[in-house]
Design a protein around this nucleic acid. Structure first.
Lengths: 283, 283
DNA sequence: CGTAGGGTTGACAGCTTTCAAGAAGTGTGG
DNA sequence: CCACACTTCTTGAAAGCTGTCAACCCTACG
């Protein structure tokens, strides 16, 4: 599992002096194969291994900022180890946590079309990321079909994950939101080989609260509630899921069912061959 | 603007009889150039016009289902005209609106990595979409660099839009959420050439409420509030933005600023050259 | 004309936010 | 090693807002 670190380990004295060589390709390199493995493309096909290209790896200490909101999008990043958070400072100074990213997740893609980052990425622990310069990314994708495919899949997962977030916030009750968050966290950790029942939250309550869209006191209270019901055990940021089935049950409560039956969806697709005259109707 | 419809207009009698030829390549075809134009790739470069490929166009009547949650992901779709909504039925039957999609937006990409749709797409008016079969999509992208680039950008925008959603729901007060929604709508309509100050909502209050994560009565009340303050004028689904600056001001209210100063972000990137031993710390 | 769905508004219970204070953990420096 | 400062986390109490239930109006449609 740690074999991917083999390409690193030199220039250990870079520390945060690296901040001086502003965003230089620092910290080390890794083989493309490592990148693909982290991105979960191992099972696909060991097709084009004619790619000897190395990938830059950046190492981040806890709290380090990978990129700043408003800064130019010079690279795409794939989380290699650790975890990052994406935060967006509102115009009034409040900063909103948009997402948490773990190994295999892509950072910065959403800013590609504008060339400017729409949020900052901050490491929540000692982390490392693969850096893929946007300049030359197309060429690289053309050269390596495996990378291209892996990126597509990663982006698809990313978009899928964004849907999860919407689901998270769709819940009304704070307890339900927190339950869903814990389950989401559990699934995510399980997918990278960690225990889904016992884990350490890397983020503070305030960040969780921000992501869930509630006050951080409410998060604290919800933790206490779930704990007092025997669903979980909480010791600061150490979480034990004691009763997974009931936690799932707890996460399932949504708004009243009264609205469900009405906005029903037909069970079969319908199409018609009208000309694209929808514009006229909207004027 | 309507020139893109030139390739259509035949087989006008397909109507929803098309539902019988289950998901057949129906309704018509258009030139790849049309697709690229809708995707906003016109300004880029008229590079590889050696692509004579046509793209299937599906026409949908109001309420038609483009694809069902749980169904196989056979095609990617790009909205050509009209508007769609993505909905996800919760396990308990309540269906949650995840997003609204307009011209140029991609549908189905989030399901690509699993091969199964994670939500349904429903037309909110007479609409049309380009259909790109996933089978052979890679080949097509390789053939047309313009399509490849356009897709990348569209997906980037999509992901960017997902961030907007998070921002939408981050607001505490219902009035603020609705204000942000209206501004989001306004911007989106402006980007496709429609009036940003006067528009017709294609979705019912319940769908807005679902997207915003509030009760539909609350949406109704918030509309009334904003109207009584003179910020907007509401006539059923007809919206007039009367005072854009103050509406923006209204949308800017977030949670108390007290939390803002604390979780400050360093103003410069920090990096360190630790080996990827973050795994050990997480055990 | 009657029904069904969409939209608005009122009343009240319930939950969340806010303000406030205290407890517990972390890190620094003596 | 302890003291101190600082942040994080927890808990309490009151005010406010939202969810829910309910009634009513309106339009579309058969």
């Amino acid at each position: 599992m740690h074999s991917s670190a083999s390409a690193l380990g030199h220039n250990d004295h870079a520390y945060w002096h690296a901040s001086r060589r502003r965003l230089a390709p620092l910290s080390g390199e890794a083989h493309m194969a490592d990148l693909l493995r982290v991105m979960g493309a191992d099972g696909d096909a060991g097709t084009t291994w004619d790619d000897p290209l190395n990938v830059a790896v950046w190492c981040l200490r806890d709290g380090a900022v990978l990129f700043h909101e408003g800064g130019p999008t010079e690279s795409l990043f794939v989380v290699r180890s650790g975890s990052l958070k994406s935060v967006k400072l509102s115009e009034d100074g409040y900063n909103q946590v948009v997402s948490f990213a773990g190994p295999g997740q892509v950072l910065g893609f959403e800013s590609l079309h504008r060339g400017v980052h729409r949020n900052s990425a901050v490491a929540m622990e000692v982390s490392s990321v693969f850096a893929l310069p946007v300049k030359g990314l197309d060429r690289r994708r053309q050269q390596s079909a495996a990378l291209d495919m892996a990126l597509q899949m990663a982006i698809s997962r990313q978009l899928d994950g964004a849907g999860d977030m919407a689901e998270l916030m769709a819940a009304v009750a704070a307890d339900v939101r927190l339950s869903r968050f814990l389950l989401w966290m559990s699934r995510r950790l399980a997918s990278v080989g960690q225990s889904p029942l016992r884990f350490h939250l890397r983020m503070c309550r305030r960040d969780v609260a921000s992501l869930l869209g509630v006050a951080h006191e409410t998060v604290s209270r919800s933790f206490s509630n779930l704990a007092s019901e025997g669903l979980i055990k909480v010791l600061n940021r150490e979480i034990d899921i004691l009763d997974m089935p009931r936690l799932i049950e707890r996460a399932r409560c949504t708004r009243g069912l009264s609205e469900s039956a009405q906005a029903s969806i037909p069970t079969r697709s319908l199409a018609m061959a009208t000309d694209g005259t929808a514009h006229s109707a909207s004027a």
